[in-house]
C-alpha cells in the first residue's frame, strides 16, 4: 500500500461523509451491482467498477423517503479506496474509505398549517409553501457524502463497523452500522456460504433519529450475494449483490 493511497483514503474519510454496502470494493477488474432495501429507512441501488483491488468508482441512488410524505433522495457518484488490508492466516481485516458528490432532492409536498399560521414539515430552507394550499415545490441541492468501514473476517466469523454520512443544504443523514456474523460451517470456493448476522444500526440527522436491531441470513455463492431478515420491530431488510 503506497503512502499516496493511504493519504488519499484518509482525506476521503476526513473531507467527505459516508454510505454503505457489504464491501465497497470486491475484487480487481470487477463490476458490482447492489440493491439494498431497509423498510422504514432507505432503499438503494448502486453500480460500481473496480479497476484495481484497492479502488472503485460508482454511481448510486438512495431513497430516504420511506417515512415521509415527500420524496427524499440522494443521487451520487462515488470513489472508494482500500486504505489498508491485513492478510493473515485464515483471516483478513480491512479499512475502507469512500466519498462522493451528488444531488439531494425533496419532492413536491403539502405542508400542514399550524394553529399559529406556520407550516409543519418545512424546515429545509427551500421555497416557501403556497400560503393558501400549503404546496411546497420540489427542490434540489448539491450534496457530498463520505464513509468508512472496518471489517475483520474468517471463514466462520464476520464483524464490521461502518459509518455513512450525506450532507446538503436540504438535509443531512448518517447511519452507523455494527455487524457480527457467524457461519455454521466453513465454505469453500464452489460451495454455498451461509452466515447468520446480527446488525445494529443508529440513524442520525434530519430524517431519522432512531436505532434498530436486525437479524439477517446471508447467502453467497460465486458471483451472487443474497441477504434477508427483519428488525426486532418486524421491518424487512434485504440486500442483493452481483459481481461480474
Amino acid at each position: 500500500m503506497t503512502t499516496t493511497r493511504l493519504i488519499v483514503g484518509t482525506l476521503l474519510c476526513l473531507v467527505f461523509a459516508l454510505e454503505s454496502q457489504a464491501r465497497p470494493i470486491v475484487f480487481a477488474d470487477s463490476t458490482n451491482v447492489m440493491l439494498d432495501y431497509r423498510e422504514g429507512a432507505m432503499a438503494e441501488a448502486q453500480i460500481s467498477y473496480a479497476p484495481e483491488h484497492w479502488m472503485s468508482v460508482g454511481l448510486g441512488y438512495t431513497d430516504l423517503s420511506t417515512d415521509y410524505s415527500a420524496s427524499h433522495s440522494f443521487t451520487y457518484a462515488r470513489m472508494s479506496v482500500l486504505v489498508k488490508r491485513w492478510n493473515m492466516e485464515g483471516a483478513q481485516a480491512n479499512i475502507f474509505g469512500w466519498g462522493g458528490i451528488g444531488n439531494t432532492y425533496i419532492g413536491r409536498y403539502v405542508a400542514e398549517f399550524t394553529p399559529d399560521g406556520d407550516f409543519n414539515g418545512h424546515d429545509h430552507g427551500g421555497p416557501p409553501p403556497d400560503p393558501e394550499s400549503g404546496v411546497v415545490a420540489a427542490i434540489n441541492a448539491s450534496a457530498y457524502n463520505a464513509g468508512a468501514q472496518f471489517d475483520y473476517e474468517t471463514l466462520r466469523f464476520y464483524s464490521s463497523f461502518k459509518t455513512d454520512y450525506v450532507d446538503s443544504s436540504l438535509f443531512w443523514h448518517r447511519a452507523d452500522t455494527l455487524q457480527i456474523g457467524f457461519a455454521p460451517y466453513r465454505h469453500d470456493t464452489d460451495s454455498l456460504a451461509t452466515w447468520f448476522i446480527i446488525s445494529g444500526r443508529n440513524y442520525a440527522g434530519d430524517l431519522h433519529e432512531s436505532q434498530e436491531l436486525a437479524f439477517l441470513v446471508r447467502l453467497f455463492k460465486k458471483r451472487s450475494w443474497v441477504e434477508a431478515g427483519a428488525t426486532t420491530d418486524g421491518k424487512i431488510q434485504a440486500l442483493l449483490m452481483f459481481n461480474f
Binding site: A28, M88, G90, A91, A193
Partner: peptide, 14 residues
C-alpha cells in the same frame, strides 16, 4: 493468506 470468501477466490483467479 487472506483468502476468506468466494469473492476473494474470484479475484485471485481472474
Amino acid at each position: 493468506h487472506g483468502l476468506v470468501c468466494g469473492f476473494c477466490a474470484q479475484g485471485v483467479e481472474k
